[in-house]
Design a protein around this nucleic acid. Structure first.
Lengths: 224, 224
DNA sequence: TGTACATCAGTGAACGCGCGTTCACTGATGTAC
DNA sequence: TGTACATCAGTGAACGCGCGTTCACTGATGTAC
């Protein structure tokens, strides 16, 4: 196998360049970004884009996958930087990293956590990247299991079902609490990112951390 | 002043009809709904719509205001139906009503709590209807003030500022807890409504109520 | 109650625009011998 | 190493489409006297 060909390398660079331009366009056009506009800004004729992406939807899918990966990486990196025996600090780091990423990339965040795009169905390969943050939360909690809390039976059945599909999954109380933290974290991030706190709360970073603290109490994550 | 003229009554009916058609179109097109398509389905020529709404944005604004009012009314009605001395039940009724409305009107919900529409700024008259749910939560908590919880100073300043603008506002701890419940409630509703629990939780109604319970504990709302 | 005029709803054509995608093509890069 | 052929990137024109908004118009409803 020869060293990668010139063409292959150029192709990769141009694909990257197209995605970068498309990411920029997300900011102004949201999910309606226009293939023609992207092509224009990438310095090519619209039809040329079809050498790289078979359709507009495929381009969108690439952006979505990328966004999930980028968000998850930011969250995981922040969490990994905290010493393992400080579960609450790990949680706070993770949560704040999610927030920071969302505020830094509002259009990409809206793409993955905003309104469903009418007529667009995410392909199955976005499922794995989408669950990375949840999995990190589960990991933190596994090492510091919260007290069990009664669950509605049907919900418990759901968690049992999840465990059956995923052998290393922790016990239900851990799963249940992780889900609570996950939904609350992303719910709050979405709320702030979409401007729902504007004109109400100015100290939004402090407010967010305060809420993360409330959530941590709920999971009885120990202080240092 | 004579009785309302024929023309005035017809005008009102047609305005209603246009809004109804537009609401239906939201479901398929989201916020990109097309003025021409609405006109078509309302049985008129596109330009005729301009007798009723000065622009597409004005039509969108009407839909947004309507959606806020409708959601708030559903929540308030459900809450009002519970006896006053059962604060936790009032909260559960309110929360579940918000959820039910959101699932019944996903497109309208996405319009008000989904991704910001690029290039569209909500006019100031949507602020009041948007805060009705929060106000109802504040009312419930005012009558059963939660224990005070330390707040970051900057956040406390925000709440003090809000109280200054709104003389009847309750004390900071009540405000703070109400905000927590409000953001968590709408965060969770958004999360579920946008399909983020699909393939993970099947018993979504039970899951939602469970989460409302967690939030109620957090606000130390007494059981009956 | 009847008439003259003003207001308003709705029509139909047109404006200038941008869109996603297809297709036949040119010319450069890569591959096999 | 050189040649012949295959692959691929990018062009340019065209397809058929829908969009928001404007404008001059007709005819019906409302108002003042």
């Amino acid at each position: 196998m020869a060293t990668r060909t010139l063409r292959a390398r150029v192709r990769e660079e141009i694909t990257e360049e197209i995605l970068a331009v498309a990411r920029r366009h997300l900011a102004t056009d949201g999910a309606n970004l226009s293939l023609r506009a992207v092509a224009r800004d990438a310095g090519m004729v619209p039809s040329a884009l079809y050498r790289y992406f078979p359709s507009r939807d495929a381009l969108l899918t690439a952006l979505i996958t990328e966004a999930y990966q980028s968000l998850a990486a930011a969250a995981e990196d922040a969490e990994a930087a905290v010493s393992r025996d400080r579960p609450r600090a790990r949680w706070l780091a993770l949560g704040n990293a999610v927030r920071t990423w969302a505020l830094k990339h509002p259009a990409e965040y809206a793409l993955i956590y905003g309104s469903p795009v009418p007529g667009y169905a995410a392909p199955p390969d976005t499922v794995a990247p989408a669950s990375r943050v949840l999995i990190t939360i589960i990991t933190i909690l596994s090492e510091h299991p919260p007290a069990a809390r009664p669950l509605p039976p049907a919900v418990e059945a759901d968690f049992r079902h999840l465990r059956a599909q995923w052998p290393e999954a922790p016990a239900e109380p851990v799963l249940a609490t992780a889900f609570t933290l996950w939904t609350q974290l992303l719910g709050l991030t979405t709320f702030e990112s979409f401007g729902r706190l504007d004109n109400l709360i100015e100290a939004r970073a402090d407010y967010f951390t305060h809420q993360l603290d409330v959530m941590a109490d709920l999971a009885s994550l120990p202080e240092d």
